[in-house]
Design a protein around this nucleic acid. Sequence first.
DNA 1: TCTAAAGTAT
Length: 460
Amino acid sequence: MCRNEEISPDNYTLATLSKVSSEIGDVRIGETVHCWIIKTGFVSDTVLMNSVMAMYLKCGSFRGLREVFDKMPQRNSASWNVLISGFSVFNSCMIYEDVWMLVKQMQKESVRLDAYTISTLLPMCDGKWNYGREIHCFIVKNESALDYLDVHVGSCLIDMYSKRKNVTLGRRVFDRMKCRNIVAWTAIIMSYIQNGDCEEALALFQRMQFKVEPNRVSLISVLPACSSLNSLMGGKQIHGFAIRNEFNHQVSLNNALIDMYCKCGDLSYAKRVFDNDAYCKDEISWSSIIAGYGLHGKGNEAVSLFNGMLQMGIKPNSITLVGVISGCGRSGLVKEGLNIYNSAVTLYGISPTVEACACVVDMLGRAGQLDRALEFINSMPVKPSPSVWGALFGASVLHENLEMREIACKFLIQLEPENSSNYISLSNVYASSGRWDVVAELRNRMKSRGLRKLPGCSWV
DNA sequence: TCTAAAGTAT
């Protein structure tokens, strides 16, 4: 960058330059702009400094952002909002109490919490940080000042309630919103999908089309509902809409289509979408098609697609690994699956996740190699999870191996002491060998934990 | 000239 010394940039120019730096995402260029601002004496311009904070945020420098905030002589709501965003973006810096303290501090300094503040805070309200309802109350109390059902705030509320499995409260917000754009519609549709009501999700999607034009994200969001309902017809209609509206050049949409076709059982359509050259395939495209072939018992095709991916220079990740190994498992390709697992670190640079390890256990187990599966569990690089022992349990049921069933159940109880089905499975093991004393002891253990048999376990 | 929201592969 060069600068004509005779013409000094004003605060507007500098703000534009700061914005450009954010878009490039280059912190060095941003820092240069920041230096000019200091030299030209514009550091007291709040709006300009807010854009510098936003630049540091987008360029990944929490330190830069914090420093600007701390040195600002005057701050407005936007300054606080960017700082709060910083806490949510830079997760490693995230200490929830700190965020709440910032909010309190903001109020103490009489800075108004606005719709921006609220829609930044709401996505941070997960299981660990439980201010969601408090924030919602704040919104209700400040309805007139805040424009309660601001479309941003409303969408965030729907999303927050969805994550807490409360689609009813989300729907109440949605129904009361003054204006609903595509984001709000997508949020409520997603909420139904995430909470298992795919019929309502599709019904809303139909209604939505009379109100707003679907975009790429909304189509991607609704496709899993078609998969869940096994509605190939619904999926094809969305595919048709995507083609007519030229969304089918986008990799993310094609990925969602591939997944939908695989899950609806139409592999040839999935492959047709995959093979379309009008878009650039990424690791999700490959992982989806590989998993699809694997799921349908076509392990050899899954393995050759996996090799094709490597040849194309697309780096597989741990999810790709899970797809290809589980495909091997379903097709009895133990040797191929183990080869891929063993090359994961050395050839593909993937450290196997516990999910990948569970697939290996499942693969060995299905093939009847239960001792080898147990040996694998004892030597795997990550701590076995319930899914790992669950895989061994499933295989020991399949191959009627009581001894392995007992081992798997014991570990399952150890890992999930509150899950009653584990006790029941173990007591079934003992019941089948007539060890009623141990069965009774297990019943007592369940009782002392306040656990009950799940309804429907009539076989116990 | 400043700040916020929805999505796809196990």
